[in-house]
Design a protein around this nucleic acid. Structure first.
Lengths: 194, 194
DNA sequence: ACCTGAACACCGTTCAAGT
DNA sequence: ACCTGAACACCGTTCAAGT
């Protein structure tokens, strides 16, 4: 049976969610599509490109319109939405982190954050720094959360059952730091406390 | 020739720095030690444990005493020191991030941060959140920096030559956010601006 | 455009046995 | 305590050739 690119991505997402990122191999995916492994290289240059496409699909499916009007509320919405998108698929955070780290795709959240931060008038450099800082927080936190949530597995050192969800608290910390530098304060409250 | 555990870790560090994390395989390391791969399993339960030991060694070698007295300056010192330690070995950030994500070892920086944050009297939960937020920032930022610094390689999307170093700026953002919640403000300045 | 067949050059891990 | 020999069950990728 013949497939095209989108079929492959859809099946890859299925394999990811069922078996995890470690078992999302070209050979297993090919088997799932009832095709020889080499056939996948007609659709993707290499495994990295395939993973980038899968990461983009995870983000696309998790995308939601931003409703808030104040820039700081928009930032919180984007970050929370990103976290939800990552948690929606097994190993979603690890996948997207990897793809971002290697610099292919998954750049939508960064662009969204830069756009949302524009009204804060931080200047180009600081806005980029703030966006990356937020991204690192969300990816790092969600990776932790997802790993220790799925696992409980190996003899992990020094991790009790992660406090419920300190996501909002950590995010509030960073947003407050940004707010202090904003030329236009759309909100004087220092909310998002734990 | 016979080795013990520390020899193996030392050689692994050499392989890491010379060939990178992707080429730090059990087989290559064994070859470097002039030993059969199976011999490594006398010293380490599996590859993850070996990587954890290597990560700990990277951190141990990069460790420096904290000189500052104010908690916020200590935090900046710890974070900067961690970044330096990660940058000292090829793929250091990726290695330590992986080991931390999987929950084995490399917990010293977290413990140091929690200890440094104690005088801020944030409460146990918020201190833990702040420490993790700082850790995510340092690991994420340094991973970006190291990847795009070493590479320039593949057809990366949307990454110009990362702005010089916005590490201090990003760190200042988070430290300010923490300072707003500190019961004991040891410093009223909002420094660390870009 | 999409796939097969066959190969190349690798992996991590186990386990009985040796010294 | 530290290692060998030999195997098991895998990997990603290339490339000529088929339809």
């Amino acid at each position: 049976m013949r497939h095209h690119r989108d079929d492959v991505v859809r099946h890859a997402l299925g394999v990811l969610d069922t078996y995890g990122l470690a078992d999302l191999t070209m050979r297993r995916l090919a088997g799932d599509l009832d095709v020889r492994p080499s056939a996948l290289y007609h659709h993707f240059r290499d495994k990295q490109s395939l993973l980038a496409a899968v990461a983009d699909e995870v983000l696309r499916r998790g995308a939601r319109p931003v409703s808030a009007t104040a820039w700081d509320e928009q930032v919180v919405e984007i970050c929370s939405g990103l976290r939800d998108a990552l948690l929606a698929y097994r190993d979603g955070a690890e996948l997207v982190s990897t793809v971002i780290a290697f610099g292919l795709g998954a750049s939508q959240p960064y662009d969204d954050l830069v756009a949302a931060l524009a009204p804060a008038r931080l200047g180009e450099d600081l806005a980029a720094t703030a966006a990356r800082t937020l991204l690192h927080l969300v990816l790092g936190h969600t990776l932790d959360e997802q790993t220790h949530l799925q696992a409980g597995s190996a003899g992990a050192i020094g991790d009790g059952p992660r406090p419920r969800s300190d996501f909002a608290a950590g995010l509030g910390l960073v947003v407050d730091g940004i707010r202090l530098r904003a030329a236009t304060g759309t909100s004087d409250r220092l909310d998002q406390r734990a």
